[in-house]
C-alpha cells in the first residue's frame, strides 16, 4: 500500500502552520496521522501537501484552569489515558482514551486529530459531546471557541474550516458521575455502538457510531428532564436517530443496542 505522491512541510509554530496550510487548497494538517495515513494508503485521501504539526510540542498539555480542564490538541491518547490530573478530575476521559484502538494507536493518535477528523465512530468526540466540551480553533481570522454541540456537523465534517487549526479542547469540571459503554466484537475495533453518559447538573447522553457524526440522545435527555424512569428514558434513546447498517450490525440492531447500553449506563450513573 503506497499513498499517492504529496509534498510535505513541517510547521514550526502555530502561525507557521496557518501560513503553510493557506498555501495550497488541497493541503491538510497531519498530527498523529492515525486517521489520515490509513486513508492515504488506500488513496481515499489524496492531499497534495501535508503540513506536519507533530512538532508543535507547545500544543501538548493537560492543564487545570479552575472551572475547566484544558487539553492541547496535540496531546496523545496515551497521555490522556495516563494523566494523573485527568484521572483525578475527569477520569471518564482517561477511560475513554484507554479504549481507543490499541496501545500502538494510542501512542500516536492525538485528541485534536480525533476531534478534527470528526468521525461518528470515534470514541473521544462522543465523550466530549456528552461532557459539553468546547473546541478552540485559530485561523486567519483569529481565535474562536466552538461548543461541541455545534462542532460535529456530518460525515467527517466539522465546524473547522480547512485553514483553521484546532489548538485546544476545554472540558468543564463538575462531573458527578459518568459511564462509558463501548460495544464491539474485538477489543481493537471501533465501537459498533458506544454510549457516553454524564451527570453534570443535568444528564447528557451521547452516542458513538449511531450516525455519520457523534450524536446527543435528545430523546433520552428529554425523557430524563421530564422525570422518566431509567427504563423509559433508555427506551427513547434512539428517538429520531437512524443509525447506519454495516457488517457488524444492522440499523435495527444498533437501535436495540443503543437502548440496552443507555439503560446500563444510566444505571451506573445513579
Amino acid at each position: 500500500m503506497y499513498p499517492s505522491k504529496f509534498d510535505y512541510v513541517r510547521a514550526l509554530s502555530v502561525d507557521d502552520a496557518l501560513e503553510k496550510i493557506a498555501s495550497d487548497e488541497e493541503a491538510k494538517f497531519i498530527a498523529g496521522g492515525h486517521s489520515l495515513v490509513p486513508l492515504m494508503k488506500f488513496r481515499l485521501a489524496t492531499p497534495s501537501l501535508l503540513v506536519d504539526i507533530g512538532g508543535l510540542h507547545d500544543l501538548s498539555y493537560i492543564k487545570d484552569e479552575g472551572d475547566h480542564l484544558a487539553i492541547g490538541a496535540l496531546t496523545r491518547h496515551t497521555e490522556v489515558e495516563h494523566s494523573q490530573l485527568l484521572q483525578a478530575e475527569l477520569p471518564m476521559l482517561s477511560y475513554v482514551a484507554s479504549l481507543v484502538g490499541d496501545p500502538q494507536v494510542r501512542h500516536r493518535g492525538t485528541i485534536g486529530g480525533s476531534v478534527a477528523h470528526g468521525d461518528g465512530a470515534s470514541d473521544l468526540p462522543a465523550a466530549l459531546l456528552a461532557l459539553d466540551a468546547s473546541m478552540i480553533a485559530v485561523g486567519p481570522s483569529g481565535r474562536r471557541e466552538i461548543p461541541a454541540k455545534e462542532f460535529f456537523k456530518g460525515f467527517l465534517e466539522t465546524a473547522l474550516s480547512p485553514d483553521e487549526l484546532l489548538v485546544e479542547i476545554k472540558v468543564p469540571k463538575g462531573v458527578s458521575s459518568w459511564s462509558y459503554k463501548k460495544f464491539n466484537r474485538r477489543a481493537q475495533d471501533w465501537a459498533i455502538v458506544g454510549v457516553a453518559a454524564v451527570k453534570n447538573g443535568s444528564t447528557k447522553v451521547a452516542f458513538v457510531n449511531m450516525g455519520s457524526s457523534p450524536l446527543r440522545s435528545t430523546g433520552c435527555e428529554d425523557a430524563l428532564r421530564s422525570g422518566a424512569t431509567i427504563e423509559e428514558a433508555a427506551e427513547r434513546a434512539a428517538e429520531g436517530i437512524e443509525p447506519p447498517s454495516d457488517l457488524n450490525a444492522s440499523s435495527e440492531f444498533r437501535v436495540h443496542l443503543a437502548k440496552v447500553l443507555t439503560r446500563r449506563a444510566l444505571e451506573e450513573l445513579s
Binding site: Y8, V37, D52, Q104
Partner: peptide, 16 residues
Amino acid sequence: LMDGKSVKSCTVLAVQ
C-alpha cells in the same frame, strides 16, 4: 519502538 513506545510503523510516515 519509536522514542521508546510501540507504534505501528506501517501507519507512520518516515518523514514523521
